[in-house]
């Protein structure tokens, strides 16, 4: 069966000695929408950084059947669109349009194709007129949308988002949830927002202390209060 993401027995220890991942297994099939939850320090962000090769640990990581090797990094990064927690870290170009164009540009696409992708990505996140704006004038919710657009423009096979609703006010959060519901891509979303998980994601993976402790239907997990509490979660 073709998997978009395959992680087998992944181990990773930070240079300062902190063991962040202690044997993680994860398989995501095309079209799935999966939530990744767990307490702070569980290793969620670390795991995400392994999915596009920014961190390299021991074990096997494959993206769209490509093994995580230097020669595949370009294609892998085009296939996995990672949206990090702090949009300010990802909006690093002088204008919004430049940021959304960055990905396709570095993929080597011709100018008019890049422009087309920029327009459609901005439209997909509901900000079609934002191309000329400067990032620091955007609101928190708008920045998150542009960050998502900057990754959509690469037309990845899977979207990986790290804490997308963190720091948003209720309106911004609702808007983002609506956006995620509308996007057709395969998704892996790391979050503390269990109410959003219940709304959007049929499958939930619980990571705790660097290992996967639960991997199954969201409904089952939400019904098990003891299990939630054991891993620092609250429905």
């Amino acid at each position: 069966m073709h998997h978009t993401l395959e992680v087998r027995d992944l181990h990773f220890t930070y240079p300062d000695g902190r063991a962040a991942l202690r044997g993680v297994d994860l398989f995501v099939a095309p079209g799935e929408k999966v939530a990744l939850v767990g307490p702070n320090g569980a290793g969620k962000s670390t795991l995400i950084l392994h999915l596009n090769g920014i961190l390299r640990g021991q074990g096997e990581v494959r993206v769209c059947s490509l093994p995580m090797e230097d020669t595949n990094l370009g294609r892998i990064r085009a296939s996995v669109g990672v949206v990090f927690q702090d949009p300010d870290d990802q909006l690093f170009s002088p204008s919004v349009g430049d940021d959304v164009a960055f990905g396709p540009l570095y993929m080597g696409l011709p100018g008019d194709e890049v422009e087309r992708r920029v327009s459609s990505a901005l439209a997909a996140v509901g900000m079609p007129e934002a191309g000329g704006r400067v990032s620091h004038h955007l609101s928190g919710g708008e920045k998150k949308r542009v960050a998502i657009a900057s990754v959509l423009s690469m037309e990845p096979e899977i979207l990986v988002l790290d804490e997308p609703t963190a720091g948003l006010d209720p309106r911004g959060r609702r808007g983002l949830i609506r956006l995620l519901a509308a996007l057709p891509q395969t998704m892996l979303v790391s979050t503390h927002d269990l109410r959003m998980v219940g709304e959007l994601f049929a499958r939930t993976v619980v990571l705790d202390q660097g290992k996967v402790v639960v991997d199954g239907p969201t409904a089952e997990l939400m019904a098990d209060a003891a299990l939630l509490a054991a891993h620092g979660l609250e429905a």
């Binding site: 370009g74 690093f92 960055f102 540009l105 570095y106 993929m107 100018g111």
Partner: peptide
């Protein structure tokens, strides 16, 4: 620390050290 995160974000979108821009 921010510069390291930005570097990661640039890598994630395919940055290879060369500067490219649209006309």
């Amino acid at each position: 620390e921010r510069s390291e995160r930005v570097y990661g974000a640039m890598l994630a979108r395919g940055y290879d050290g060369r500067t490219r821009s649209l006309i």
